[in-house]
Simulated assay, not measured.
Amino acid sequence: MADSPSPLAQGEETGPMIKQLPVSLEDLFYGTKVRVTFRRKVWEEKRRRWTEEEHDVEVPIYKGLKPGSRVKFRGEGDIGPGGVERDLHFVVVERSHPTFTRHSLDLHCTLDVPLADALCGWSLTMTSICGKAVTVSHPGPTPTGWIERRTGLGMCDYRRPEERGDLVLEVHVVWPEGQLGEGQKKMVRAALKDL
């Protein structure tokens, strides 16, 4: 019976194993630990073949870590001929968030404001990433694209966790659906005539 081809002939990698690790924005803000179970290859010298085994590691997600950052483990990857262990790298991937979009340390949030409120004035309360109630208001009229910035309510910095970016709130004016009746048009024209 012929020997199996060598691992290098099979094109086995010698660099680090790289795996993506999806993480929530809240976990990146507060920091956490994520236990990850995966399958790694192990070279059996006696049988001259690769097998697979289940392996798990606990990945620390440090407070303020940015998407694309790597969390590295020495020797936790595949085990090759002679017991040579590959390193294992997890690349942090930020999951999409229903409220916030991250831009470096700043968190952007879109506020939907109905047209009538945009014209007459409005007030909204939302919750920041750290759980603080944030009230935003404007007497009107408020155009789409109007921005209010709240200093220090964004993401924290990995290297300086006590420092935070800003919360950037941008208004999107929601126009009514459907057609206005003739009576409604006259009322709107009359109301806006002197503005």
Rank of each mutant, 00 (worst) to 15 (best):
G145I: 07
L167A: 06
S128M: 10
L167V: 02
T142D: 04
L167N: 00
L167Y: 03
S96G: 11
R150F: 15
E94I: 01
L124G: 01
R150P: 07
C109K: 07
M155H: 04
S137G: 13
K132P: 03
G165K: 00
S128D: 15
P114V: 02
R95L: 15
E94G: 01
W122F: 08
E162G: 06
R150A: 09
R150Y: 15
F100T: 00
Y158V: 10
P161Y: 06
L167G: 01
V136N: 06
P141K: 10
L167Q: 01
V113M: 03
P114S: 06
S96A: 14
P139F: 08
T144N: 13
R164A: 11
H103A: 11
L153F: 13
S123D: 04
A116R: 14
L153C: 10
D117N: 15
M126Q: 10
C156Y: 01
W122P: 02
L153I: 02
T142I: 05
A116T: 12
S96P: 11
V168N: 01
H103N: 12
G154L: 05
T101H: 03
P139H: 12
P161W: 11
E148S: 12
H103D: 14
P161G: 11
E162R: 13
G145A: 07
R160Q: 14
K132A: 15
M155V: 08
L124V: 03
E162V: 14
L111F: 10
E162C: 09
L107P: 00
G121D: 11
S123F: 03
H103E: 15
R102M: 08
V113T: 03
F100P: 00
R160D: 14
I129F: 01
C156F: 01
H138T: 02
M126G: 09
S137I: 00
F100D: 00
P161S: 07
C109F: 09
A118E: 03
V168I: 15
R149G: 04
T151G: 08
D166W: 01
P141V: 07
R164F: 05
W146L: 06
G145R: 08
G165E: 05
V113P: 00
V113L: 03
L115I: 10
T142M: 05
L105K: 03
G131V: 08
M126E: 09
V168C: 07
K132N: 13
L105D: 02
P143T: 12
A118Y: 00
L119N: 13
C130R: 13
A116K: 14
R164H: 15
C109W: 05
D117S: 14
T110L: 13
E148R: 15
F100M: 05
A118S: 13
I129Y: 00
L111V: 06
P98M: 09
S128K: 05
G145C: 10
M155S: 01
L107V: 08
M126P: 02
L153G: 04
T135A: 13
L119T: 05
A118W: 00
L119R: 15
A116E: 11
D157T: 06
E163A: 12
T99S: 11
P143H: 09
S104I: 05
C130G: 11
A116P: 02
T127N: 04
A118K: 02
V168D: 12
G145N: 12
Y158L: 07
D106I: 01
H103C: 04
K132V: 13
W122G: 03
F100Q: 00
R160A: 10
T135P: 08
L169F: 09
R95E: 15
D166M: 05
V136T: 06
T127C: 06
G131T: 02
R159P: 01
G154C: 07
